[in-house]
Design a binder for these strands. Sequence first.
DNA 1: CTGAAAGCGCTTACAG
DNA 2: CTGAAAGCGCTTACAG
Lengths: 344, 344
Amino acid sequence: MTKKSRSTSFDIAFRAGVSQATVSRVLRGSPLVNEETRKRVEAVARELNYKVDRRASSLRTQKSGTLALLLFEDPTPDESHINPFFLAMLGSITRACARHGQDLLVSFQQLSEDWHSDYEDSMKADGLILLGYGDYEAYRDKLSALVERGTHFVRWGAVAADQPGVSIGCDNMHGGQLAAQHLLACGRRTIAFVGHASSHYPEFFDRYHGCEAALSEAGLCLDPSLQVDAETSEEAGYAAAVQLLARGRPFDAIFAASDLIAIGAMRALHEAGIRIPHDVSVVGFDDIPMARFSTPPLTTVMQDTTRAGQLLVATLMQLVRDEPAESAMLPAALVVRKSSFTLG
Amino acid sequence: MTKKSRSTSFDIAFRAGVSQATVSRVLRGSPLVNEETRKRVEAVARELNYKVDRRASSLRTQKSGTLALLLFEDPTPDESHINPFFLAMLGSITRACARHGQDLLVSFQQLSEDWHSDYEDSMKADGLILLGYGDYEAYRDKLSALVERGTHFVRWGAVAADQPGVSIGCDNMHGGQLAAQHLLACGRRTIAFVGHASSHYPEFFDRYHGCEAALSEAGLCLDPSLQVDAETSEEAGYAAAVQLLARGRPFDAIFAASDLIAIGAMRALHEAGIRIPHDVSVVGFDDIPMARFSTPPLTTVMQDTTRAGQLLVATLMQLVRDEPAESAMLPAALVVRKSSFTLG
DNA sequence: CTGAAAGCGCTTACAG
DNA sequence: CTGAAAGCGCTTACAG
């Protein structure tokens, strides 16, 4: 253990022949320091490889320079199967934090846990980013509690007027419309919806409503017997499509509430000998990387994760600085691939 | 702004009629506290929703209870395309940290940056987990510097005797052998290797060597003109396979250094009218989620990310506690899917 | 422009 | 079993 003990601002001060306070001023970039002094201190700091102890400065200033990302999924059957969409978000959030000079604490939570308090309460983070699927009704009260406590947080999810706190989300309704309009343009008339469609899953529900709206514009409707519940996983999508097929009602398209569901549903269709897109067109939602590589490649509604991450972090930073911040909806965009469309 | 100001251990002490020191003892679970006193303090703490300020306790104890994960990729063309394998690792590392009661700071770094110092130097983390692909030769010096400074870190990557610091990695050599043995068992004789094969990329190189070893055991060899460089991305795999085909040398199998490369290569083969696995078998490495959904589903060598994450964290914790810790190699396992094997 | 001093919220010897 | 006190390493009024 030859590890040299870390140098402090006092060591720097001693070597540079100034007071510790001056060292602190230099390192904080205070304008109140003489140019000569600044240079001397900086040189010594560099030489001793000095870095400000962030715990101490944070304790003093009451700002941690850290944001926390809470990822939750309920139930979480298997840790290795994190929704790829969230992982993309995580990537962009990480980058956005770096650009804002913030560190990012990441944690996976169960919806059932007492996550609402931990990070901000223990002063490890200035604010929270909430990301996850799950039953919204169960989740809503926790959001209200966060607002109550004055916790700084932004949430990724459905944007609605009556939501506690600030939310950033995709324009799911419009995304649903785009999907349905595209299917109609492909000549499809009988669209099945695979995914939860209730207020417990507001994002899915908005996608469902968007689909419904586009259909009714075309004088058609979304037959409730062609809707099957599914949470977002390949397995759930598979099981739901099997169930859908078992009902024996004809359909010529599936709009899945997420890409994972769509990919699972395609597996079920394939096993049933149904040709995609010849017999049934399939459209997903998210545009996860896998969507390009499914068989056939999946037509889907893209959510812009890069912009989402940036906006999430920028908005949270406003909140942290006690500036007003607003919920916002990001546009959805259709990505056409071969699962929906056939020239023949 | 009705946010009530946070309560401190002094507030608890006052309400519970004890000294602040006693509050601290209770909260730390010290055995030196009378049962009655403990209960009283705990009740008050719960009532005021008190949480220990981790910055203050960390400043005092010199332990942060935080680990940092440094993910680097060089070059990083696009933040949205993080290697799915690393994302799986991130998931399991996050879980493992939670089990160890550690928080996890996540950061994406460029290999070129001065990442080696930031977190531990600024005392925000007790130790570092390094994860990433990139040119190892460039990276090696940084590892040595870390060792020099006494930084606690574990690295995911090739395990070799002469490596600075502690490494956890997959048995890449054996993985390569498994892949080649499988291809041989499928009746293949002329195996192309797609991916870097040099000491700059030790993990890939080990996979290459494993492949070579299995071939030579069968009296065959890995033709150097059937090796094409590629870093791990779908695009690079595609480009490399195009280049391979352009060489005009026949081959009946591709062993790709990663799944992403394999998936890109399959796209190139497909476009060239080559049937998989009929004309050419393809095997990848990693077993990313996408591998199951490629066309055809990709045979690959699985790395156990769950165990990897656990071991990485457990090993780092040993280091943090100044206990001896050792490098370790995790077994690789073949996952057979349709890209390699045909009954016909 | 600079220094002496207080204080951020804890933990832990030390003394009782 | 408990309290008074020092100290972790900073930042920032305050005084000069």
